[in-house]
Nucleic acid binder design. Structure first.
Lengths: 110, 110
DNA sequence: TTTATTCATTGCAATGATACGATTAATATT
DNA sequence: AATATTAATCGTATCATTGCAATGAATAAA
């Protein structure tokens, strides 16, 4: 059916999946890396930097903005994007919890 | 076109996206959490635990196995699944590098 | 005001992902 | 051998995602 049955999972599981899905495309990974590297960036610069069409970049930015991972403020005809560090840390906390489940060293069973 | 243009991104960016996509579904998050919790698990147990049909769980397991994050060994009619801790740590290294880009405290620009 | 620039939105085509019923393959059990 | 159990695979339906051309909206520059 192409639809994830979110209702049978915990909030945490769904939240992890949502953030992970945002990183599930190399363009969004590249956008975030670039925003971290140069602090702030206009959409047009990202189009040049990444190499995808402007509507495509705009769409990826929209998703990242929807999750709160980036912010965008209008500056004349341009829009300045940057990482929302507050939300980023919140997300990282969640993801690192998930990634660090194996603190206790265990033997692989199979 | 529904196709990510992987050729215009770096290997690292594509790799991050691949692993992230694996965590982009709550069922796979739940499967991994359960495998960590009880060390090893049969497919049938996961079907009961998660609440999705057996073919669906089997499909999710296949993806996790393809990425090397889990291992599965046949035990009679059952298949025992467990986390591949080696690969898991490798993946975590990659993801944590990405998640820790903001070590230097910066001001949000917008 | 006219033109240019910048970016969002819309609409479309193509592909991917999710879910499951039905079936198949393999081993255990009787 | 016949049956049961377990899990993979196949086929199919449905929705999601990706990408871009075309267009629209808003501000800046002439």
């Amino acid at each position: 059916m192409g639809l994830a049955k979110t209702e049978i999972f915990t909030d945490t599981q769904n939240e992890i999946a949502l953030f992970a899905k945002a990183f599930g495309h190399p363009a969004r990974v590249a956008i975030l890396q670039h925003l971290f590297k140069i602090d702030a960036c206009f959409c047009g610069d990202l189009v040049k930097e990444i190499g995808l069409a402007q509507p495509t970049i705009s769409q990826h930015l929209k998703e990242l903005k929807y999750l709160g991972l980036i912010k965008g403020t209008v500056e004349g005809t341009s829009v300045c994007y940057c990482v929302n560090t507050e939300k980023w840390k919140e997300m990282r906390e969640l993801m690192q919890n998930f990634l660090s489940q194996d603190i206790l060293p265990k033997e692989d069973c199979c």
